[in-house]
């Protein structure tokens, strides 16, 4: 493998040029964590890299390359993230959709679709473009009406569309206060919750920056944090990771698992399949059948 001496940061956001060893090792630890490696293994990998750098006297970028590339190689060698701890308690049914049918003019978009999600479960809705994934989610969120069928929800509902849901001229903080007030949170609690969710997606909102000045991916992080504000019992996510870089995409799934472990029932519309072995239910609309 050839690698230029100063490292090739690309779109990772790391500084060009020689990287201080401590910074590189810290970044490596963070990237390994993102890939879902347990803390034991992460510690070993980082310690071994540190020892190698001490012995060889090389710079980290020359010996290993950028932290995220090396972390990805390690994750691939280890064989993916640690399996979910078994014995996770699954709670009562939070979302019960029955017989959802929807037609647009002549075309039947959804035909008698059922979906049940319990607290502490993640359901993925997959399917080709136009197979009705977003429509189903909008129906469950109450933003569209089906021709037939019912949706019953036990608890509070949060919804994150692929874009939008954000007010252009307000700052992130103001969004948190606004949505928080609707959920019954006072200002400081709403801000804390919103900033916490933002930080988990690797975003520190700058005060005074209006939403229209945010990049597309960052607006979506705001969108997602707002959907989650007030810890709803059911969370409907329609490919909310539009515009996320690879690291944020991994962070997003980390959050999904953490919210799930906290008892939320989550439905994710996605057509990226690499996380499917960790979800509890897969609803494939292309084949119009539910696979558990």
């Amino acid at each position: 493998m050839s690698r230029d001496a100063g490292g090739a940061p690309g779109a990772h956001g790391y500084r060009r040029g020689p990287m201080r060893t401590d910074g590189w090792l810290a970044a490596l630890a963070a990237e390994l964590h993102r890939h879902g490696l347990g803390s034991d293994l992460t510690g070993h990998v980082v310690a071994e890299a540190a020892a190698h750098l001490r012995d060889s006297g090389e710079s980290p970028l020359a010996a290993f390359g950028p932290p995220d590339t090396y972390a990805a190689a390690v994750a691939a060698s280890v064989g993916g993230p640690a399996p979910a701890p078994r014995g996770r308690v699954v709670g009562p049914v939070r979302l019960a959709a029955r017989g959802i049918t929807k037609r647009y003019r002549r075309r039947t978009v959804l035909a008698d679709v059922d979906l049940t999600v319990r607290a502490g479960e993640v359901a993925a809705i997959i399917g080709a473009n136009g197979s009705g994934k977003s429509t189903l989610l909008r129906i469950c969120a109450g933003l569209a009406r089906p021709d037939r069928g019912t949706v019953r929800i036990d608890g509070r509902l949060g919804y994150c569309p692929q874009d939008g849901g954000v007010s252009d001229f307000l700052t992130a903080d103001e969004h948190f206060v606004l949505i928080g007030a609707g959920r019954g949170l006072d200002r400081s609690a709403a801000r804390r919750a919103g900033l916490g969710d933002a930080a988990a997606l690797d975003w520190a909102p700058k005060p005074g920056v209006q939403a229209r000045h945010l990049s597309g991916g960052t607006r979506q992080k705001l969108n997602l944090a707002l959907a989650r504000l007030g810890t709803p019992d059911v969370l409907l996510l329609d490919e909310p990771y539009q515009g996320f870089d690879r690291g944020s995409y991994l962070d997003f799934w980390h959050q999904v698992w953490r919210w799930r472990d906290g008892g939320t029932a989550i439905v994710v519309v996605t057509h990226l399949l690499n996380q499917l072995d960790r979800v509890d239910t897969v609803l494939d609309l292309t084949r119009a059948e539910a696979a558990a």
Binding site: L157, V166, S167, I179, G182, A227
Partner: peptide, 15 residues
């Protein structure tokens, strides 16, 4: 008009 995009979310949030 400006409030349109955020209205569904406001409604879901309890307004």
């Amino acid at each position: 008009s400006a409030a349109r995009t955020i209205e569904p979310r406001l409604r879901l949030s309890g307004y």
